[in-house]
Nucleic acid binder design. Structure first.
Lengths: 339, 339
DNA sequence: GTGAAAGCGCTAACAG
DNA sequence: CTGTTAGCGCTTTCAC
């Protein structure tokens, strides 16, 4: 009805200058005690809220933090977002979430929109697709890459995972349980994470003195569907007795392929997933997996964002790496020859 | 380095008025063709993005939509957020997610912060705690309540679920499978949803000609922990042979209590969950559950938001209800006496 | 077709 | 202690 409540409308209401209202509201010392009280009370009554738009336009940094994730249904990403949202609440940041579905074009758009609202920082899982060297202008925001890493033409932070030992151990463990045909499903070489994980798988084979069989390696753009399709291929082949996954989405997709066939990931067919959703412990005899420390990753990400605010203009190019860990459950424990 | 790229900086760069730049950029007809081309090119080169803050301050509605959820790890909420985020992308809305942990105070804060940024609309799962009649000022935003409903002093939309039939059927089904001691764990009476679900459970008992045993009913503020604790109590009691859950968090909490004891939710101990995370189909012989149509709910919510934008100032008080559905899987199929 | 002025809400920098 | 002015980036209104 009466339009927005602003410092001016309050000032008019009280018959004073809008500057006095501003000072009273922002706790400036130079205000008469009673005046301040009157302003505070009237503001509360009227339901005044400071306009973030005005503040932003004056040049103050926003409290907006962007988060770009492939999706938010995968429990890893969900947990990451959950922890970040909670931590952002502490700093009273606004968390804007964009889902990219690992599509570079959507990623580009999302970043542009975040630039429009002058997001202070963006935490992003870079999409694996080819980036045509676009978006050279996001220097305005602090950028923190998550899990994966793409080359950027400016300084940026990174929160990464070192899963090499865990993946290698997974292969060694499976071999130790008697498996000889161990399949790997992972991301292609578009990003370094995909290359590193495959290398770790190979190291595992070598350590276990197993020969590499190219037919047992499936790679592609990482997605739930890709994981499912590849696992179907593996199961149709009937050669492999064990499967190691190199990606969150891939892992869930592959597992769903097993479940669709009623295959329990246990003795006869071994499965090592990636990421550790709660339910992995509950399926079959428990799904073995490479666990990634989500909480630590998310907390560190917000810490980097918060740190970036102290040195405005400075670009935080800190990069931190967390170790993944192999969790062995029923699904990888023992190889039992089919009866 | 030279600060933000604005229409003024572009104008100066090109030696024209900032108004011409504005017109060129916003597709106004009254601009020389070549001038427009020059402006467009220079803007692209410089990486110009329109300041959302300035636009907002002029009075245009923001494209910000708030989403308040208890958490985002529960797959129901995660899926809801996922669909909403995708649909928001279509309308190029910004989705700001706040997690309330079902805490009214956090809810209040989140709403206030959303008001600061002038969110166009807020979709919220109202926290069940007592609301001390606060926040009488959020008339500025369109409000859409989700799943639960709290009385508000102004018009607002609602996207609800009618789960009465499904819950009643769950009880009837369990009774039909031979269960006599059917426990219910659900929310207390703080919100209508809690009351309605309990009533539906009672109707089920009545329809199955089972007497109500107050000792078999557990209620409280709905949360994962509450569900787990109540289920532990039930299992310790050793009386009940079946368990029906009346809430997303409660369901997951209760299920985790079963799994912690290695109890498969099947024949001997029957379990009917609430919500239908993917993995429910994979645990034990499959977890029976009350399925809520997440996608429809989320899509409708965004539709309401989008509709609200056409009639600015008008408050959309549309309320829509979707039916829940009982999904019977292994966990509730047949009652088998303990051997 | 182009430009100059005004104002959205706020605060820093000056007056008083 | 309080008030006035100016300007952040943008578009609407009114000149030219």
């Amino acid at each position: 009805m009466a339009g927005r409540v602003t410092i001016k409308s309050i000032a008019q209401d009280l018959g004073i200058s809008h500057m006095t209202v501003s000072r009273a509201l922002s706790g400036h010392p130079n205000v008469q005690k009673e005046t301040r009280a009157a302003v505070l009370e009237r503001a509360r009554e009227l339901g005044y809220v400071k306009s973030a738009a005005a503040t932003t336009m004056r040049g103050d940094a926003t409290k907006i933090v962007g988060l770009l994730l492939p999706n938010i249904v995968n429990e890893f990403y969900a947990r990451f977002a959950n922890v970040m949202a909670l931590d952002c609440e502490k700093h009273s940041y606004h968390l804007i979430i964009h889902l990219t579905n690992d599509d570079v074009e959507i990623e580009r758009q999302s970043l542009e929109r975040l630039r429009e609202v002058q997001a202070r920082a963006v935490v992003m899982v870079p999409a694996p697709g080819k980036s045509d060297g676009s978006n050279p202008h996001l220097e305005a925001m602090q950028v923190i890459q998550l899990i994966r890493r793409r080359k950027l033409p400016f300084a940026h932070g990174a929160v990464l995972v070192d899963d090499r030992a865990a993946l290698r151990d997974a292969v060694i463990h499976l071999a130790g349980s008697g498996h000889r045909a161990i399949t790997y499903i992972g991301a292609d070489g578009a990003l370094s994470s995909g290359r590193k994980r495959l290398a770790a798988y190979r190291q595992g084979l070598k350590a276990a003195s197993l020969a590499e069989d190219p037919g047992l390696i499936h790679r592609g753009a990482p997605s739930f569907e890709m994981g499912r399709a590849a696992a179907d291929l593996v199961l149709d082949g009937g050669k492999a007795t064990a499967l190691v996954c190199g990606g969150f989405e891939i892992s869930n997709g592959a597992l769903s392929a097993l479940m669709a066939r009623g295959i329990q990931p246990d003795g006869a067919f071994a499965f090592v997933g990636y990421g550790d959703p709660t339910f992995y412990a509950w399926v079959g005899g428990g799904v073995s997996t490479v666990r990634v420390p989500v909480e630590s990753l998310a907390q560190r990400a917000v810490e980097l964002v918060a740190a970036g605010q102290d040195k405005p203009g400075m670009r935080n190019d800190a990069s931190e790496t967390f170790m993944a860990e192999l969790i062995v459950r029923g699904s990888g424990r023992q190889y039992s020859e089919a009866p």
